[in-house]
Nucleic acid binder design. Sequence first.
DNA 1: GTACCGGATGTTTGCGGAAACATTAAGTTG
DNA 2: CAACTTAATGTTTCCGCAAACATCCGGTAC
Lengths: 334, 334
Amino acid sequence: MADVAKLAGVSGQTVSRVVNGNDRVTAETRLKVETAMKQLGYRANIAARALATGRFGTIGVVMFNLSAVLNVRIVEAVVSGAQARGYSVSVAVVDAPTERDVRAAVRGLTDRAVDGVIVIEARVLDTPHLRLPEEVPLVIADSRAAHKHPTFGMDEAAGARAAVDHLLGLGHATVHHVAGPAGSNPAQRRRAAWQRQLKRSGRAVPPPVVGDWSPRSGYDAALRLLADDGVSAVFAANDQMAVGVLRAAAELGRRVPEDLSVVGFDDLDFAPFLTPPLTTVRQDLDTVGRRCVEHLITRIEEREGADAGQTTSRFVRPELIVRASTAPPPPRRS
Amino acid sequence: MADVAKLAGVSGQTVSRVVNGNDRVTAETRLKVETAMKQLGYRANIAARALATGRFGTIGVVMFNLSAVLNVRIVEAVVSGAQARGYSVSVAVVDAPTERDVRAAVRGLTDRAVDGVIVIEARVLDTPHLRLPEEVPLVIADSRAAHKHPTFGMDEAAGARAAVDHLLGLGHATVHHVAGPAGSNPAQRRRAAWQRQLKRSGRAVPPPVVGDWSPRSGYDAALRLLADDGVSAVFAANDQMAVGVLRAAAELGRRVPEDLSVVGFDDLDFAPFLTPPLTTVRQDLDTVGRRCVEHLITRIEEREGADAGQTTSRFVRPELIVRASTAPPPPRRS
DNA sequence: GTACCGGATGTTTGCGGAAACATTAAGTTG
DNA sequence: CAACTTAATGTTTCCGCAAACATCCGGTAC
């Protein structure tokens, strides 16, 4: 920076002003400085700036699992949103779903220099409400509003209700459920909503079969479920398990949708091309991710001002996409 | 830090020594300092350290697309490997597949303070060999060895060859190909290897149909392909498109594998549960990601020493997984 | 006993910026 | 035209740490 200043014949401070946009600098001076910068290939040293300002231009993302399709979609939206606002994104993956570990990850990130943190909460924690130190602004991506921080997510319950209503509406006596793992929040919420909706409709609530999100677990679950001839409708907690259900049905000679209706959750891109095309609940994770970054960056940048610490929360409503895997139940066997 | 020093009754430098591991400090002094640190909740300021040392403890990842399943798997391995070595990971997504844009992304990252960069190269660039400024160590994840930097990736060609050989071995006269998009490197390599292998085996090389990786494009492609009754074997460049192919076959009344054999690529987790279970080529992206980080971090840390700038490259061989979607061809119609 | 040596610790300095304050030059006002 | 603004720029200082160098100490060799 000193070199630039010398070459441009101005003080270091003026260079700094030019770099940081328009404090009051004459167009002429600015031009001189910019020329000098270009000529010298000057690039600001972020560490030095961070040291002086206490700001890093980076936001951190904490998550449990990068390979889960859904998480990635959120991360993608976060990255693109952050980049658009001039922030970079630092990713941390935590192993165990304990508040302690999450807290450690957040600390690691803040140690590592981030201005804010997004926690993608997809696991059931040892605590019902994440309560993290607010050394920096923090937002949570989750479907529960119970946290002590701003939260954005899907309205899982609405999605599950839509699935159940759709199947009941077709005339099925009840709806069986292939649930996600006990350790997953979305799984628990979908399951609870399924159960509640059945009860509310005065239907029997058959015991759910628990899977682990994988196609294989859906397959195994369906094998067990379909041992009972009376099962006419299955709601799988995600599309991957629904794939397994379809496979099991095929092997057992149950035609879908004539003998068995299947609904998934997520609307992954292959859903329309399964055999048969899958009725499922579409999630808009992009929106969730975008909202997280926007809210976070807003809070980061207004931080100097009032601590506008209202715990905003917003939930996106998923949409039921009806395809060919659902139909009215077969005539009751006598 | 000054507070800690005061509380422990030592100089700041001694605190620094304790924090940075074992320069020569008495166990006794170390204990005093550590106690003081704990008591004060001291946490080093990364920016200051970075400013003083010129090291950041962060590596950057540049990629074109986070939502591609394959990329994510690499990123995941990178993140976990980096975390294990005490580094954090910064992610940047670039839009356009031009060397210029990649270079800009790398610059952005180095501006943003990273010690090294990994570029996940999955798009055909305007230049055949990525040539990036080596302000910091840099490794590329790609299946081509042509770059000026260390490169790790899959041996795409071997995978495609395995698929073709498998189908020819079953007795098919030739193998049709649903290719990935022209802009994708892996797609081009798979396609080229497919073509080469057919030629080498003295078979006709039917014109490939180009898709865009999506199930829909596989479906469309298959619809066109299967208009010809003679098509008995299809090699899709990824599993998603293979799903579309299966769907099209089902709609056209072509039984798989009796009338039509289908091979995919990737071995996504749903592959065994499709109808029928999909024969496909399994990629080990974890290994690729792990190798990238390891090599990168090694180079970062040995940097002070000799510039051991040998361009190492290594390619992991994928594995053909045979399932139920492939079989000998139907008897030739007369 | 003196000169010397090396380990443990303290002191000084600088990393590269930006904030706070100081200064200068160019209007404005009465 | 003097006193006063205000915009543009320069000076000083500090951010928090680590590298380089300085110092102190007990032990050792001769």
